[in-house]
Design a protein around this nucleic acid. Structure first.
Lengths: 169, 169
DNA sequence: CATTTTATGTCAGCATTGTTGACATTACAA
DNA sequence: TTGTAATGTCAACAATGCTGACATAAAATG
């Protein structure tokens, strides 16, 4: 696993970690890890009439209570028609509360009801458990690296949404 | 179940990197990074009549030329009906060649045709580019951490498939 | 105040990709 | 010969994307 230094273009940087094989490995890891990452919530959601799209909505409403529909749309990156279908079910089923905005009455501020929070914590509990085990097995240094690589893989136009969210941690 | 941040195996480990905030951050990073990760291929695929499922099939056929349908099914984790729909299109369109197995004539060995390889390299080129930029920006230590965390996030029942693939790197 | 723009909701239709269930064919294995 | 395995296919359905069109209410603007 050690990389022996090799002369490279001028700077003396060792860029052997950028070989196509390593990139391919990373690409496949993203695929397999994402599958693992979503598998627990997917299994839980089968006991409900909900899918992954509902999970995402519930997650980000819990993450930023009172979030507007437009902000949620920006985060999820889907059309309003697609989100609305999911949101309508959650509101009808009493998991999400949609309140008219106080400053701008055109807006709707979204909140989880008590029942919505029950589902949210069941889903996020399973997901956190897997993440915690992976973090623990890999160690704190690895977690920093994990974060760094993933941050750099995000699309530029998502940065604003992400930074706003992470400011709330 | 719930572990408080406290030393574990006598190493005086600091488990503060396992706080719920850090886990939440990791969870959201997976979501946003995966979106970025798939965005370039998705954009390219819009110029074809293909979708993400075709990309996955093409990727793993290229990765392990001659792979059997059953092995591909195990890797992708979908039903044979779902895969077959995609595979049939690719074969009909002349991107994939399906040859009767030589040792076991029940099996079909899958190969990319020249045309299939053109699509594959267009897709993987875009994906490698993004991965390379993320790796480069994060650095080799971070890449090791990225790998370690993701490896630990994979479902146990995928290990065999993964190890077989990575043995070919 | 009149007009325009914004935020949201909704209907209809369609595409992709996943599912289950059933059934057929071929070929290997016991 | 019988059973099982690998593959293909038909049909129906579900989840979740998309586009386009239209409606309403409220804010913003001239």
């Amino acid at each position: 696993m050690q990389e022996r230094p090799r002369p490279s273009v001028g700077h003396g940087d060792d860029l052997l970690f950028l070989t196509d094989d390593n990139l391919l490995h990373g690409i496949e890891l993203m695929f397999f890890a994402y599958k693992g990452f979503t598998s627990d919530p997917d299994r839980i959601l089968q006991n409900y009439t909900y899918g992954r799209a509902h999970h995402r909505a519930v997650h980000f409403i819990n993450r930023q209570p009172g979030i507007t529909v437009n902000n949620l749309l920006a985060i999820l990156g889907v059309t309003k028609q697609s989100l609305n279908r999911v949101l309508r079910q959650l509101v009808d089923d009493g998991l999400v509360d949609s309140r008219v905005g106080k400053v701008d009455r055109r807006q709707r501020n979204l909140f989880l009801t008590d029942e919505g929070q029950v589902l949210e914590s069941e889903l996020s509990g399973a997901q956190r458990l897997r993440m915690r085990e992976a973090f623990k097995a890999a160690g704190p240094d690895a977690v920093r690296g994990f974060r760094s690589v993933l941050e750099n893989m995000v699309d530029a136009d998502m940065r604003k949404s992400i930074d706003r969210l992470q400011g709330k941690l």
